[in-house]
């Protein structure tokens, strides 16, 4: 299925949901559940919260069924809701100073709980875990919008125009965000690359 056809398919499904077809909503959920949860997880690094926010995303999609108009790509709209909720959550955590920072919770040198929980064998993957931790820290340290842009560009494979649509900014602003984010990540993770090449 081509990308355009897939986009059309999503919009068609949503229009059917508008007409009361709950099976179409189930299809939309099947198609986008994993990308949405993974996106939020990469943004906030907490699986339980990622699932909770993803539920809120799909709840909002369902609430909007009566007024839905396919004016933009369905995924642009979907990720706009997702990004909005994720950024709000990050902002609220910063404001309330209740962020369960893994930095402060995990003692120095230990694996982060959320990331390490699902590793098949911790002993065999200590090096990998340490690298993951470095990468996780570097991504988390990015400014919120840069982090969202990188996550959409690198992991969701969205193009600039779509990211611009989600973040409500120009394509050149997206390019600038990505350029600065990748520059920062390259500087922070350069030692990992040296470790690999040596």
């Amino acid at each position: 299925m081509s990308v355009a056809a897939a986009i059309e398919h999503d919009a068609q499904l949503m229009l059917r949901v508008r007409e009361g077809d709950t099976a179409s909503f189930a299809q939309l959920l099947d198609r986008h559940r994993v990308p949405v949860i993974h996106f939020v997880y990469r943004m906030i690094q907490n699986q339980a919260v990622a699932e909770e926010l993803a539920q809120e995303v799909f709840l909002r999609v369902y609430r909007s069924r009566a007024t839905y108009e396919p004016t933009a790509k369905f995924t642009t709209w979907l990720f706009r809701i997702t990004t909005h909720l994720a950024l709000n959550w990050i902002r609220d955590q910063k404001n309330e100073r209740h962020q369960q920072s893994l930095d402060s919770e995990a003692p120095e040198g230990t694996a982060p709980l959320q990331v390490a929980d699902h590793l098949p064998n911790v002993e065999q993957s200590m090096v990998r875990t340490a690298r993951m931790e470095e990468i996780r820290r570097a991504i988390l340290a990015l400014p919120d919008k840069q982090r969202a842009a990188v996550t959409m560009h690198k992991y969701q494979e969205m193009d600039y125009s779509q990211i611009a649509g989600v973040l409500k900014c120009s394509e050149s602003a997206v390019k600038s965000l990505l350029f600065r984010a990748y520059e920062t990540l390259r500087m922070k993770l350069a030692h990992l690359n040296r470790g690999v090449s040596e």
Binding site: R136, Y155, L189
Partner: peptide, 17 residues
């Protein structure tokens, strides 16, 4: 190299409830 490192940080291992 950066993208390769970012690929390691994959959420594929995330088990959705």
């Amino acid at each position: 190299q950066l993208w390769s490192a970012l690929d390691e940080f994959d959420a594929a291992e995330l088990q959705i409830t």
